[in-house]
C-alpha cells in the first residue's frame, strides 16, 4: 500500500513536468519578443530590457528552463512585474475566498446531485428522470455568468433577499455575512456541477442496477431502498468520485468567472487583473498553482479508490 502511494506520487512528476514545460514554452513560442509582449504597448526600451533581465530571457533556453524548474521546486512561482511582490505571496493573500467558494460549491452540488441522480436512475424513464436529465442538459447549456446575472437580478435586485456582490470573510467579518454573500455565487457555480454529478450518478447507478449482485440482493428479499443504498450506490461510488475529480478543472474555470460577476477578491480576480495589466508571471504562476491543485486532488481521489473498492488493492 505504502509502496503504491509512493509509486503513484512518483507518477505525478512527469505530468507536472509536462505542465511546467507547456507553461514555459507558451511564452517562448508566442509570436514576437516575449519581453516586449509582456512589457505592453507603451513600454520604453528600458522597460523591455528590465523584463528581459527579470525573466532571464537572454540565456539559452535549456538553461532558462532548468533554472526556472529549480525555482518552482522551491516554491518560487516568480515575481509580479508591476507590484514586484512574489507571486506565491499574492496567491496566499487571495486564496481564502476562492477556496471557500470552491468548497461550498462542491459540498452543495454533491448533496443535491447524488440523491437526484440516484432517484433518476431508480426511476429511469419516469418524469423524475426526465426532469433531472432536462435540468442537467440545461445546466450544461447556460453560461455561468448569465446565470449569475439572472440570479442577481431576481434574488438581489427584485426580491432584495441577498446582497448583490462582494465577499465577507467568515474569520474576520462573521459567519452570517459570509453566508449571505457566498450563497448566490455558490448557487451560480453549483448548477453546472449538479448537472455533471447528477448525470454521472444516474449513469453509474443505472449500470450497477443491472449487475448480477443487485439481482442477488433482490433474491434475498431485500427492500428496494436498501438495494439502492447498500448495493447500488456503494458500487457506483468510484465513477462518481472520479467525475468530481475531473470536474475540479471545470470548477477552477468557473471560479474565475463567478468571482468576476460577484466582485469577489479571490484568485480569479487576481488572474483577470493580471491579464489587464499584462502581468505574465502572475498568470503563469496561477496556472501552475491551479494545475498543481488539480493533480494533487486527483491523486488523492485515485488513492481513495482502494477505500471504496476492495478489488483495488495495492
Amino acid at each position: 500500500m505504502l509502496f503504491y502511494i509512493f509509486k503513484r506520487v512518483l507518477m505525478t512528476i512527469p505530468v507536472m513536468i509536462v505542465v511546467a514545460l507547456f507553461v514555459f514554452m507558451m511564452l517562448r513560442l508566442s509570436p514576437g519578443d516575449p519581453a516586449a509582449v509582456i512589457a505592453g504597448d507603451y513600454a520604453t526600451a528600458e522597460d523591455v530590457e528590465r523584463i528581459r533581465e527579470q525573466l532571464g530571457l537572454s540565456e539559452p533556453i535549456v538553461v532558462q528552463f532548468t533554472k526556472w524548474l529549480g525555482q518552482l521546486v522551491q516554491g518560487d512561482l516568480g515575481t509580479s512585474i508591476f507590484s514586484n511582490k512574489p507571486v506565491a505571496e499574492l496567491i496566499v493573500q487571495r486564496i481564502e475566498p476562492t477556496m471557500l467558494l470552491a468548497l461550498s460549491t462542491i459540498v452543495f452540488a454533491v448533496l443535491v446531485a447524488v440523491p437526484l441522480g440516484t432517484l433518476a436512475a431508480y426511476r429511469a424513464g419516469s418524469w423524475v428522470d426526465r426532469f433531472v436529465m432536462l435540468f442537467s442538459v440545461g445546466g450544461f447549456s447556460v453560461p455561468v455568468f448569465v446565470l449569475g446575472y439572472v440570479l442577481i437580478y431576481i434574488l438581489s435586485l427584485k426580491l432584495k433577499w441577498l446582497p448583490v456582490q462582494g465577499y465577507r470573510s467568515p474569520f474576520t467579518e462573521g459567519i452570517g455575512p459570509f453566508f449571505a454573500h457566498i450563497t448566490l455565487p455558490t448557487l451560480t457555480l453549483s448548477v453546472i456541477f449538479i448537472a455533471l454529478i447528477a448525470r454521472m450518478t444516474r449513469a453509474s447507478v443505472i449500470e450497477v442496477l443491472e449487475e448480477d449482485y443487485v439481482r442477488t440482493a433482490r433474491a434475498k428479499g431485500q427492500s428496494e431502498f436498501k438495494v439502492l443504498m447498500r448495493h447500488a450506490l456503494r458500487n457506483a461510488a468510484v465513477p462518481i468520485i472520479t467525475v468530481i475529480g475531473i470536474g475540479i478543472a471545470l470548477l477552477i474555470g468557473g471560479v474565475v468567472v463567478t468571482e468576476s460577476v460577484y466582485n469577489i477578491p479571490g484568485l480569479g480576480r487576481l488572474v483577470l487583473d493580471a491579464v489587464l495589466a499584462r502581468d505574465y508571471p502572475i498568470i503563469q504562476g496561477l496556472i501552475l498553482f491551479f494545475s498543481f491543485i488539480y493533480i494533487v486532488l486527483n491523486l488523492l481521489i485515485d488513492l481513495s479508490y482502494s477505500l471504496l473498492d476492495p478489488r483495488i488493492r495495492y
Binding site: V15, V23, M26, A249, V275, I287, S291, Y294
Partner: peptide, 24 residues
C-alpha cells in the same frame, strides 16, 4: 497520455486566457 494528462490538469479557461493574452 502523459502529455494529455498534463494538458488536462491545466484549467481550460486559464490556458485560453494566457494563450490569447500572449499571442493577441
Amino acid at each position: 497520455m502523459r502529455v494529455m494528462d498534463g494538458l488536462m490538469s491545466i484549467p481550460a479557461i486559464l490556458l485560453a486566457i494566457a494563450l490569447i493574452s500572449l499571442s493577441g
